Simulated assay, not measured.
Amino acid sequence: MADVVGVVERIWRYPIKSTGGELLQRVDVDARGLLGDRLFAVRDAGGKFGSGKNTRRFRRMPGLLHLRSRYPDDVGEPELLDPRGMAVPDPTAYLRRYLGRDDVHVAREEAISHFDQLPLSILTTATLDWVRSVVPDVPVDERRFRPNLLVRTPSGTPPFVEDEWFGSKAGIGNALCVELVRSSERCVMINEAQRDLPHSPSVLRAITQAHNIRLDALATVVVPGPVQAGDTIALL
């Protein structure tokens, strides 16, 4: 018997990796994840992707989170929006001016996945409310954690309830089925300023101390299908 654990409250897609995303009411989900999610990235001459950190795969490019991306025609070439929310005519040309470097361009995913880990990130309101409670002086909403699905959980649900779902399959809506695998190991990206959210090291510090730097539920897609706001999520 299915155990309903919450309702999809908001759906987020990030057409250009490491930029702010777009809020959706409905989207199709295939084996790769939300259709078009992180399908594009800012790439430098060395093949590294723009991010808030420097690693083997990523190059720190401060300011990307002040931008947003969206698909004007469902899925195709994404638009890049400047900090005022205006679409720029040439994303690559704009980024070269904005970042002050002439070796970057907006690139479509090829052999190397743009995902840091697994295709879907799911975050509950129970966990998000806990973060707000432990850093009350810092504005916090789900944009800091960049989930695909924010799930409204019943009153009284404990924080980090996502941990209890690992190893289970979940039905979302009438067709979509996912397998919940593990949580994301968080990094400095969640501290970064973006639009109306200020920079704060307190967010990562709190999660590190309370939950071993991990937060959300990462999932793979078992059966593709659509997801829309208001869909129930039920453990199978």
Rank of each mutant, 00 (worst) to 15 (best):
E185H: 10
E77N: 13
G63Q: 02
F145K: 01
V151Y: 03
R56K: 13
E164F: 09
D116P: 00
L176Y: 01
S168F: 12
V135C: 14
S155G: 11
I122R: 00
L218Y: 01
D102E: 15
T92M: 11
K169M: 11
P147Y: 06
A93L: 13
V181D: 07
V134E: 11
D90H: 08
R26V: 12
R146V: 06
T232V: 10
P154W: 08
V134F: 11
E77C: 06
I11K: 02
D28F: 05
V88G: 15
H105Q: 08
V131K: 00
L176E: 03
E164L: 15
A45E: 08
Q194L: 12
P89L: 13
H114P: 01
L215D: 02
A2M: 15
H199P: 00
L65K: 04
A175R: 15
P226C: 13
L149V: 05
P154D: 13
E164R: 15
P89N: 11
N54C: 09
D37Q: 07
G33E: 01
P89C: 12
V151H: 03
R97E: 15
Q25E: 15
R59M: 08
R108M: 13
T55N: 11
D231L: 03
V134K: 04
S69E: 09
L150Q: 05
V221M: 10
T208M: 15
A107M: 06
L197W: 09
V140T: 09
G171T: 04
G225C: 11
A107Q: 11
G100T: 08
A193M: 08
V5R: 08
L95V: 10
V161L: 12
E110M: 09
D141Y: 05
R96P: 04
Q194G: 12
I122N: 02
S183P: 07
A87Q: 03
I16A: 11
P198S: 07
D73Q: 14
R60E: 15
N54A: 14
G36P: 02
G156Y: 06
A210R: 04
S200I: 05
A111P: 00
E142H: 10
D129M: 04
T157G: 13
K53G: 01
P154G: 12
A170E: 05
G167L: 12
P224V: 07
L99V: 08
T220C: 06
D73P: 01
V104C: 10
A87S: 14
A41V: 00
P226K: 07
G6S: 08
I233F: 03
G21D: 02
P62K: 14
L204K: 03
H211P: 03
P136F: 07
K48R: 15
K53T: 12
A2V: 14
R59T: 10
A87D: 04
S51V: 02
D231C: 12
D216N: 13
P91E: 13
T125E: 10
G20P: 00
F115K: 06
P226E: 15
D37W: 00
L120D: 01
D231Y: 02
P78T: 05
I11F: 05
K48M: 10
V131I: 14
I207F: 08
T153F: 01
R70Y: 05
G33P: 00
P158D: 04
G21Y: 02
G36K: 01
V188L: 14
P89A: 15
R182L: 05
W12I: 01
A170S: 14
A219N: 01
P15S: 09
S51F: 05
D141A: 09
R108F: 03
E142Q: 14
R68D: 05
